[in-house]
């Protein structure tokens, strides 16, 4: 099937099982939130899907097997990700960051010349992630929220079909969260989106489906309402007020 299919995924670090047999199916067009306490293995799951962490099991995206492929080959299949701590190229401008993200398929002749105009996909992404006004600013000088948007913009121009976003709204102000939520809505029209997030309020407003992870395993899965009603989830979150 198209979309992301994960079967019996295991990631072991020096004998410590960070992800212990996860099954996950994210159909095309879904906006899936993955929640779970710190250390549940959410980031490691994304690391395994994107080729950063060695894993066993099976991961397919649009029927392509991902496990065993190199990071850049997986990216070329349309799997894009952001990081918990934003990793934009700080000494390049917003425009340069986006232009690089748009370019892995460029030939040597294009690479050896100067960018003469702003490519249309870059222009569109600038508008989508609301960074047109700061186009020529160094990415390192952007506030945290805008860095995260720039990362999302980079996925857009990269032509990613699957967006794996690791805590994109952590540390954002209320307004920034709302704007990011709207952005996720726009993205989901043409992309499959997986978001790791802690914030329950944000999740209720923007998730279409939710997977709860705990101690390297999937604890529960379903709609927001189903997951919230699950006693297993309430148990894990005991002491963490679910009604944040």
């Amino acid at each position: 099937m198209s979309g992301l299919v994960v079967r019996d995924l295991q990631v072991v670090f020096d004998g410590f099982v960070a992800v212990g047999g996860v099954d996950l199916t994210v159909p095309s067009g879904d906006v899936r939130f993955i929640i779970g306490p710190n250390g549940a293995g959410k980031t490691t799951l994304i690391d395994a899907i994107t080729g950063l962490a060695r894993a066993t099991g099976a991961v397919t995206f649009d029927e392509h097997e991902l496990l065993g492929r190199k990071v850049h080959k997986i990216a070329r299949l349309g799997v894009g990700r952001t990081f918990q701590n934003s990793t934009v190229f700080e000494e390049l401008t917003v425009l340069q960051n986006l232009d690089i993200a748009a370019g892995w398929h460029r030939g040597p002749l294009t690479l050896l010349r100067r960018r003469s105009s702003v490519p249309p996909e870059v222009q569109n992404a600038l508008e989508t992630v609301r960074l047109t006004a700061v186009r020529d600013q160094l990415a390192g000088t952007l506030p945290h929220g805008q860095k995260q948007w720039l990362e999302i913009g980079m996925l857009l121009v990269q032509n990613a079909k699957l967006f794996l976003l690791d805590e994109p709204v952590a540390g954002m102000s209320h307004e920034e969260r709302d704007a990011t939520g709207e952005l996720l809505g726009e993205l989901s029209r043409e992309h499959t989106v997986v978001v790791i997030e802690h914030d329950m309020d944000f999740l209720r407003r923007f998730a279409r489906s939710v997977t709860v992870m705990h101690a390297g395993k999937v604890l529960s899965e379903g709609t927001v309402a189903q997951v919230q009603a699950d006693p297993k989830v309430q148990e894990v979150y005991l002491g963490h007020p679910v009604e944040a």
Binding site: K70, H72, F89, W104, H105
Partner: peptide, 17 residues
């Protein structure tokens, strides 16, 4: 520009393909 990106974020560049 790409070279500077590789200098400052070699791992990040991989995820861009």
């Amino acid at each position: 520009e790409l070279l500077v990106a590789v200098r400052d974020g070699e791992e990040r560049v991989r995820f861009l393909g």
